[in-house]
């Protein structure tokens, strides 16, 4: 994979999304930039409330951005009129978490998959039927379910319909927001394989959001770790997952329970890397957003927001101390050594 050489189909620059909540105004996405090339999957990980789903919605222009831009195939989506935007929508599609909730219960499988084509006025009746049949085949839906309603499908088939709807318009970018987290484990594997195959056969650029790090690692070429609205670490999947630099990334990775004999010991380590609870977005920490939970935090972390520090390749880390930590020259403070 060579992200630099391939053409970026999606380019997000300095995206900022703010919301008014009961408690006041929050910045859900705080200056995020990313590029995505054809045939490439970017995995987006972070805890609930870190802003990953909001970022996805902002990219799809479903929530307004206060700052920044989203360029899809060299078109600035923010500059388009609603009508022009509708015409661009078929090039960027989304797969949702809850397949049942996102499908009209009264429509048949073929009507559901054909709907995006009709809405976007793509093709005529005959060509649409062909496209629908092709999409069904690509996602592994047998022809015999064509006339069934969503309630007559299994959970896995429902999600296949959701994916078929997303790819039938021939998008350049597919945004998947927790596409397997509502599914049973055996069905998860099937859907992950479907997405994996589609990315290859259709040369899709995929933004894959999930809280399951194993799934993200399996599917992604590059990974961005998000914390309180910011990317704290980005890089190739192997850079981020095998040589994590940011203490938060290290904590997240160590927290994944693995099926081996070191599992319990690893969780003890994780507890020393991620302290306490997620702060409120209403009152985000000054300086480094992670410092209130970081065992390595110093006064500097409270005073100065760390800029992204670019290591070799694509690996970037927003931490003042990551080089010293890696070199073994910066130890955790004593408050982290509890229990």
């Amino acid at each position: 994979m060579s992200a630099a050489a391939a053409r970026a189909v999606l380019e997000v620059s300095d995206a900022v999304v703010e919301f008014d909540t009961d408690g006041g105004r929050i910045t859900a996405v705080d200056g995020v930039s990313l590029q995505l090339s054809t045939g490439e999957t970017l995995g987006l990980v972070g805890e609930s409330g870190c802003g990953k789903s909001t970022l996805a919605r902002a990219i799809l222009q479903l929530v307004p951005m206060q700052q920044g831009s989203v360029r899809l195939e060299d078109t600035d989506l923010g500059s388009l009129s609603p009508r022009e935007l509708r015409r661009m929508r078929h090039r960027i599609q989304m797969v949702f978490q809850d397949p049942r909730g996102s499908l009209d219960p009264r429509m048949s499988v073929t009507a559901l998959i054909g709907e995006p084509l009709r809405v976007h006025g793509i093709g005529d009746r005959a060509s649409r039927a062909r496209e629908v049949a092709e999409a069904m085949e690509l996602v592994g839906l047998p022809a015999l379910v064509a006339d069934r309603l969503p309630s007559e499908l299994s959970g896995g088939q429902q999600q296949r319909v959701g994916i078929a709807r997303a790819i039938v318009t021939d998008p350049a970018v597919l945004v998947c927001d927790e596409p397997v987290s509502a599914l049973d484990v055996s069905i998860q594997a099937q859907i992950i394989n479907v997405l994996d195959e589609l990315r290859d056969t259709l040369n899709l650029a995929m933004l894959f959001i999930a809280h399951d790090l194993s799934v993200v690692r399996h599917l992604s070429d590059r990974v961005a770790v998000m914390y309180l609205g910011q990317f704290v670490e980005t890089g190739t999947a192997s850079e981020v997952f095998t040589e994590p630099r940011h203490p938060y990334t290290q904590g997240l990775i160590t927290s994944v329970p693995r099926a081996d004999t070191e599992s319990a010991a690893r969780l003890q380590t994780a507890r020393r890397l991620v302290l306490g609870e997620l702060p409120s977005l209403l009152d985000p920490p000054s300086g480094c957003r992670y410092r209130t939970r970081c065992p390595y935090a110093t006064d500097r972390c409270a005073d100065v927001e760390p800029p992204p520090d670019l290591l070799d390749g694509h690996h970037a880390v927003r931490c003042h101390h990551h080089r010293a930590i890696t070199a073994g020259e910066h130890q955790p403070s004593s408050k982290s050594m509890r229990g």
Binding site: S186, A189, Q190, N193, D196, R217, A237, S238
Partner: peptide
Amino acid sequence: GLLRLVPRFEDAHTGRLHPIAGQ
């Protein structure tokens, strides 16, 4: 089958997963 069907974190992408056929 259950052990093989989920991606294990410690593995990088090692080809397709192995779902258990059927239900």
